[in-house]
Each structure stands twice: as C-alpha cells, then as structure tokens.
C-alpha cells in the first residue's frame, strides 16, 4: 500500500550541507529498500496562493497567510506493507527539532 509522508517543518530556513547530506543518506536508504516512489520539497507557503470555492465561484488569494503553522513543506510517497512500516520509516528520518511527519494512506483505484 502507498503512503504519503507529509513533512510539516518547523521552519523554512535553507538547511546546511550537513543536514542535506544526512537527508540524502536517508533518501538513499528508502531507495535501496525499494520503498521510495517519489519525493519533493515545496517553496514556502508565503509564496503560494489559495483558491477558495464558494457558491460556484473561485477566488484566488496570494500568500503570505496568517496561519501557516501546520502546512505541508514536502513529501515522500512510499510503498510499504503496513502503516506501522510507514511510521517506522518516518521515525528514521533525520528531521529537525519540532518537525512533524504526517503519514497518510493513499487511495487506490479499488
């Protein structure tokens, strides 16, 4: 089954080369285990736009937004045998103090 590991970072500061290298080793481990399907990082929420739908009308609002605390900053899409395995992989991530990884099962076409 596929899971999204959604990174909810505490900050959007550019990481140092050491932190990037640690994360690269983690990503390599996911790849070697045949678990990793895709990953990406997102630009800061302040640079984003929100489109709200109400009564058939779409309204676009540019960031920054007041509440951007629990907002996704990146993801890994993984293939794991169970949610427990996905949680175990998330727990191995060299994430920073205060970061949160949310694990969510992806809907399949069945």
């Amino acid at each position: 089954m596929r899971f999204m590991m959604l990174m909810i970072p505490r900050s959007y500061a550019t990481p140092g080369a050491d932190a990037v290298a640690r994360m690269a080793r983690y990503n390599d481990a996911l790849t070697k285990a045949g678990v990793l399907l895709a990953l990406d990082g997102l630009h800061a929420p302040a640079e984003g736009t929100r489109v709200a739908f109400a009564s058939g009308k779409a309204t676009a609002t540019d960031g920054p937004f007041a509440e951007a605390k629990e907002v996704v900053g990146g993801y890994w899409l993984i293939d794991a045998k169970s949610k427990d395995e996905a949680v175990a992989w998330a727990s191995r991530c060299p994430a920073g103090d205060g970061d949160v990884i949310e694990i969510r099962r992806v809907q399949e076409g069945d």
Partner: peptide, 24 residues
C-alpha cells in the same frame, strides 16, 4: 480550498547543496 505551491527543482539550490544529495 486548493492551495498552490511551487515545487523545488534541484536548480533552485546552490551547487554546494546539490552536491550533497547526488542521487536526488
């Protein structure tokens, strides 16, 4: 609501950080 967020490309990072993650 739909939130639109630009996705990082490797070229958005300085060379030093690209080198630190050669398989990415």
């Amino acid at each position: 609501e739909i939130e639109i967020r630009q996705v990082f490309d490797l070229s958005d990072f300085p060379q030093e950080l690209q080198d630190a993650a050669p398989h990415e």
